[in-house]
Design a binder for these strands. Sequence first.
DNA 1: ATGGTGGCACCGCCA
Length: 272
Amino acid sequence: MPLSIVTWNINSVRLRIELVAKLAAELNPDVICLQETKCPDDRFPLKEAGRIGYPHVAIHGQKGYHGVAVLSRFPFDEVSRQGFCDVGDARHIAVTLGGAAGLKAPLTIHNFYVPAGGDIPDTALNPKFKHKLDFLDEATAWERLHRGEIERRSVLVGDLNIAPLETDVWSHKQLLDVVSHTPVEVDRLGRLQAAGDWVDVMRRFIPPEEKLYTWWSYRAADWAASDRGRRLDHVWASPALAPTARAMTVLREARSWERPSDHVPVMVTFDA
DNA sequence: ATGGTGGCACCGCCA
C-alpha cells in the first residue's frame, strides 16, 4: 500500500491551518509532519485538522516557540516524544503506524525540529550555536541506543536546519561561514545520519549535482528571482524502507501562496 | 556593506 508522508515547517499552525488544507487538497498526503507549530497543545486546531481529513493528530507543542505535530488519515499504534538537552523544548515526536493503518508491518516516523543555531557559528560566542551542536550530538547518541528499532522500517523527517551538500545552497562559497552550511554542522549532521544508517531519500530522486532547496528567506525582495534558497528540510529512510520510495515532490509553489511559510512542503511516497 | 521580513508574546526573542 502506498503511504505518502509530508514534512513542512509551517511557522505557526494556527495562522496557516488553511494552508494545510490547501496542501491536503493538492498533494493528498496520508501523513503530514509539521514543525514550528508555535502552539500550546490545548490550543492546537484539532477540529480543523479533522475537517480537512486528518482525524488523528499527535502533538508536542509549547507556547510561542518550536513545536511539532503529526497529522494522519490513519490511527497511530504508538506516539512518543523525546526531549533533548534538558531545556524543555518541544522538538521531537515519533508515531508508529501499523495494523490500525493497514500496513503489513509497523512503520515509525520521527519528526524533528533541530535548533536553528543563531547567527554566529562559534560555540564560545553564541550559546544557540552550541545548543544546536549539542542537540545533534544527543540525538546521535540516542539513535545509537535505538539503532535496532530504527533499522527496521523508519523514517526521519523534519526541519534539520542544515543544508549539507554544496548543491543544497545557492552559493557554497558564500555560505561556508553562515549557520546552516558550516563544515562543523555538516559534520554533525553526517554523524546523525550515520548513526541510523539513514538514506537521504530526496537525493535519491534529485541527484547531488543538482540544486535543491526547501527554504527561501522572508527577507529577500523577490525570493523567486534571487532564488537564494537552502535545503533545510529532509526526508531520511532506514535501509529497509528506502528502496520502497516511489516518488518525491518539493512543493516550491507553496512559497508563493498568500502569507506563506518560508519553508515549502516535501512529500515522499513509499510502497509501505 | 548593510539590512532586509515574519510570528508570537507582549514591546524583545527567535527564526
